[in-house]
Design a binder for these strands. Structure first.
Lengths: 245, 245
DNA sequence: TCATACAACTTGTATTTACAAGTTGAAATT
DNA sequence: AATTTCAACTTGTAAATACAAGTTGTATGA
């Protein structure tokens, strides 16, 4: 009985505004609400979901914050093109448009449990230090050209079955969100332009010494003290890294 | 009399939560509230400023959004290090810390009114096309080394006396905010690593062909259809571009 | 002395109500 | 027919209130 109660409590403890946020988010991503179209008005959402306006507005504020909609006084909430990725991550082609069909991911190193590297580019929280980390490397292709090499360190805290999941066609963030309720809240990053060394030039198939975009990132999440650390090498010969903020 | 009324209305039409936001922002920036310390509790702010909690919370939400504070349930609102700049802009030294005293700005081209360049890297709104643009070039130094060359295009819409202002030691954004109530709301940017050509290598005092970080930015503001366009060349030999989001 | 319980804070969520302000299209007027 | 006015929407701001949930220091208990 206690277990059932806990489950019930956990069900009920999800705030109503969050539930509405998730519903609307899902419908925007799945195309129920098309880009540029209007969401139901706040009063309509109140009636349909049996909430009051401040609660509905709380959900809409979160959607605005995350870039799914923007609002116009007197008009309504307008659906935006879903945000590519948080911070600076998307790839934009300089010559031709990039559809998802042209994007491929190759896992160079499947997620494995390791100790944290020493030295490490970022400061780790105590909890992160105590547990090990999960390490993975990926190489991304656009039109069969390597453009994106990323090295990721994720603290191995309460991530059951993580190393045995398949990442081939799924976003790392989608897996963290879907299976572990981990959401990216923000982060910091350092960017430099460097010369490709032997390893990088080989991976990205460019000449040694060619300019490469180098990014170090630390992403913070809704889990306190749980961060995602990434190092990225980007071949910007034919593409650019694109970011909204 | 009508003029006075309009002025009064304009005074009164500033929402209360916005007024509180401005007060707290000013106090955080001026150091009245130190980094890491607690802001007065919501109820205290209610009492002091004669508002209700939802209004106070609205102001605090804006401060959280802009990175001035973060909140912790049961504890309070904690003051953060004021955000450097929006998106990706700050310079972080790789060897030594950078204080403002080591930062210098040289105006290569004082703000002048021009026509928009054709072709232009970004799409312009109708209002922007009709009016001309204000053009300016700057070179930024850290420890007397050139690291940052930026070219800016700003639509010449309702910016009286802009070209005669002094920019030497003031941020462009501070001037837009202080004199014209223009605030940066967001934006998009493209990043590449490129080789320095003759002009860039000379400006940034590096060898021709060395990698340089190249950024194209379009910032949106609280004025509808008013954007700030920048092109940036960054010498990342000894420094990195740093961004919080 | 040490651990526990609790009271008094803090922020988080939610309801209800009211009016202001921007947008839009239809009806009334010119 | 063209313009103006206005009513009926929309979102924005704000009050007053209530309870839930997390934090912290104190007082009570062993």
């Amino acid at each position: 009985m206690i277990f059932i109660q806990q489950a019930m409590v956990q069900e009920l403890r999800i705030p109503q505004y969050k539930k509405l946020y998730e519903i609307l988010r899902k419908h925007i991503l799945s195309g129920v609400y098309e880009e540029g179209s209007l969401l139901p008005s706040e009063n309509e959402l109140c009636a349909v979901h049996n909430m009051t306006r401040p609660t509905v507005r709380h959900a809409l504020e979160a959607l605005v914050q995350d870039g799914f909609i923007y609002k116009k006084q007197g008009k309504g909430s307008i659906v935006q093109k879903p945000p590519q990725d948080i911070g600076i991550l998307s790839i934009s082609g300089t010559s031709s448009a990039i559809g998802k069909q042209y994007l491929q991911t190759q896992i160079l190193q499947k997620p494995t449990i390791r100790a944290w590297p020493t030295p490490f580019n970022f400061d780790l929280s105590e909890a992160e230090k105590d547990f090990g980390c999960i390490y993975m490397e990926r190489l991304r292709f656009v039109n069969e050209q390597a453009v994106f090499y990323d090295i990721n360190h994720i603290p191995n805290i309460n991530l059951p079955r993580f190393t045995s999941r398949t990442f081939e066609n799924k976003s790392l963030f989608d897996i963290l969100r879907g299976h572990y309720q981990i959401e990216i809240k923000g982060g910091e990053q350092k960017l430099k332009a460097i010369k490709a060394d032997d390893k990088i030039s080989q991976l990205l198939n460019i000449k040694k010494g060619e300019p490469v975009l180098y990014v170090e990132r630390k992403l913070s999440t809704n889990r306190d003290g749980f961060h995602i650390y990434s190092t990225i090498y980007f071949n910007s010969e034919k593409h650019a890294i694109f970011g909204n903020f």
